[in-house]
Structures are given as C-alpha cells and as structure tokens.
Amino acid sequence: MGLKTRAFSMVEVMVAIVVFALAILPLVWLSSKQTKEAFHVGKHMMAGQLAATFMDNILHRDYDDVSNIAKKSPYEGDVLENSSNSKIKDFFNLSEMVEGLENEKANENIKISFRNFRYKITLKENLKDSYNSDTKEYGKAISITVEVSYLVSDNKNDRDRTRQYLRINAIKYGEMHK
C-alpha cells in the first residue's frame, strides 16, 4: 500500500493566495487611506487653528486699525513668507513668530508643517450697518473672511496633491455714527 500523503494542492494554494490577495488589497488601500486621512485631519486642524489665530488677531485689534487695512483688502500669501507690507505684518505674518522660537527643532518642525499653507483675508467694511431710525445713526461693521488653504500631500509626485480650503467668517463692529 502506497503512502497516501494529504496536502494542499498547488491549485489550492494558488487560489488561497489569490483570494487572500484580493481580500488584503482593500485593507491595504483602506489603511493607506486612513493614514492619508489622518494626515489630512491634522492639516485641517492646523488650518483651523491658523485661521482662528488670524481671526482672533483681527478681532482683538482696535476697530480703526482694522478699518485702515480693510481698504486694501484682500490680503493673501504664504503663511511663512515675510510680508513686505508693514501695515499688515502684525496681523497676518507668522514668520516672525516662528523665527522667534528659541528651540531650533521646533522652529524647523513648524516650518515643515506650514510649508504649503496659504492664507487669504478679505475685509469688507460696511459703514451703514444697523441703522437706528430713532437716532438716525448707523453702525460700523467689517465682515472678515479668513481662508487658509493647504496641500493634502507634501509629496510633489502625488497625483492626489489637491489644495484644500478652510474658510471662517466673523464680523467686527465699530461704534455708531451719524
């Protein structure tokens, strides 16, 4: 009686490999997507923080200061680029803030993190807001739109290298006037 060995046939193994491969592919794709999404979420949150920083910076300024720069709105540029416009430097420029960090590594990290971030700030003043018919006075208001955009991928060869935009709005109110 001959020894009857039992084992996977080549076909079985091949089928198994194919099935496994087919099954693992979406998983790998999903995993990759998740990694990208996590990266994207991180960027999105950074953009949100950045936009909030810009917005808070504007909202906390005197109305007249903001009104002065509103006339030449919009302002846009790379987040880390040095603004040549001294008038708006204090408002939108992060480069000085970054340069000011004592920790060089942190400084470098921030520069890497924000390297593909751009901003666009639009200020629109309305001097005839909130009309009060009793006193015949208007209110001053400046509508502020802060838009921060970033590249989803830092890899230049990435086909998915799209630019994402985050936009927030707020209004700064001045005093009433005739």
Partner: peptide
C-alpha cells in the same frame, strides 16, 4: 459677532 453687535448697540 452677534455678541459684538449687541455690545455695539448697548454702548450706543
């Protein structure tokens, strides 16, 4: 923005 607007009116 809403609160700021209210404060604008309050101040006036």
């Amino acid at each position: 923005s809403y609160a700021n607007h209210v404060m604008q009116q309050v101040r006036a």
